[in-house]
Design a protein around this nucleic acid. Structure first.
Lengths: 212, 212
DNA sequence: TAGATTGTTAATCGATTAACAATC
DNA sequence: TAGATTGTTAATCGATTAACAATC
């Protein structure tokens, strides 16, 4: 159970979504769910759900389906760090503040515990209920608060520099919102959210789709 | 040339990124680029770049490589709507305002031309330099400004309702930031950006990666 | 039992890559 | 020409799905 390791990030994404929907269902009083029901909620095939459950070693009763509470538990054992995960936001411009508000409202295991910005007007202030440190304090704060994962929400022209600073300070994983390919050591995990590209995709596909 | 149609959204994403880097290169005075150079900049293989160029019907001189200006032109002919694309942001909370700031700073062909929010304190005001309308004015504004693509940045509990309103008002493509599976007619293009899921992915993969 | 669902594998699908003759 | 790059296909890879015997 503890040594399960899911290969694909896509699977992780689906598991995260399963869990969210299952929590809603549980709040609604539902106790168990069939693969085809969950599939319908998430927008995947039933076979996909069953294969994912197989992959995390979770099984169902062929009469009543999957036990929701246990399924949430199993997904959480896999996805969540037992000690919780402390996350920092680097860059407290509009986007950084928006991210802070978004994540502060939601998660439980993932906690935004620090923010960084080089604007002297922000540094060492409390913004949106979160203490904002100067960039040069990363190493200290990362160590003290046990931070390995950061969200990078700085302008693109400084993204590479700031990312290097973060890595030097001990960051191991970066969720990068800057439209820049970060050049970092191989052992650093980088996931990009490129909103410009996503909007261009929607725009293009929509146009193609409405053409006829 | 006008009837080229790229099948995959992944290809569109790469083309968008190629173009961004090529613009930077052109600004730096570079006139042409080899597939392996562009590949290195973007973080893909040279074969991938060549196949993408093949797909959009653009070719190179085997001595000097791809002409950057023409390549940008060809990608733009494919990606950009000739008349430009007018986009609306629905939901002018922190995230909506952040998106506005982000896109207002960047794009050329994609223009944020309207915003909507139901907060009476925001409706009909000008926020971040953009007029903010009440939700019930979508149909009118979409028609007047020729808007088909929207970015949905509202809280998850109202996302489905607001999305339906937007579709009824004429939206054909939605970039959805709410962590919700939108149920909409098949002919509506929906692209989700699920920041919670992305952060959980980074967190998980980082943990697995640093385990040993 | 009867019937619906699960677990599981082989088949399918689509995207990526390796490889190399053609090109400039 | 010589040499590096391109255009292009077959091979590879990984993820998804169809299908069905096993299960409750």
């Amino acid at each position: 159970m503890d040594n399960i390791k899911v290969a694909s990030a896509k699977t992780i994404a689906r598991l995260s979504i399963y869990r969210r929907l299952l929590r809603n269902a549980m709040r609604g009083g539902q106790a168990s769910v069939y693969s085809h029901e969950l599939a319908e909620m998430v927008g995947v095939t039933a076979a996909q759900v069953r294969r994912d459950m197989m992959e995390i070693g979770f099984s169902a009763d062929s009469r009543s389906g999957y036990n929701i509470r246990e399924m949430i538990g199993q997904i959480s054992r896999l996805l969540d760090s037992p000690e919780g995960e402390n996350v920092a936001i680097i860059g407290m411009g509009k986007l950084g503040c928006a991210l802070f508000g978004f994540f502060a409202g939601h998660s439980n295991r993932l906690k935004i515990v620090a923010a960084f910005d080089n604007d002297p007007g922000k540094a060492e202030c409390v913004i949106s209920g979160c203490r904002c440190h100067a960039m040069n304090r990363m190493k200290d704060v990362f160590a003290r608060k046990n931070i390995q994962v950061v969200m990078l929400a700085v302008p693109e022209d400084v993204a590479q520099d700031v990312a290097e600073t973060a890595v030097a300070a001990g960051a191991k994983g970066i969720l990068n919102f800057a439209p820049v390919l970060l050049r970092l050591p191989d052992n650093i995990i980088v996931q990009n959210i490129d909103m410009m590209v996503e909007l261009e995709k929607v725009s293009y596909v929509t146009r193609e789709n409405t053409r006829n």
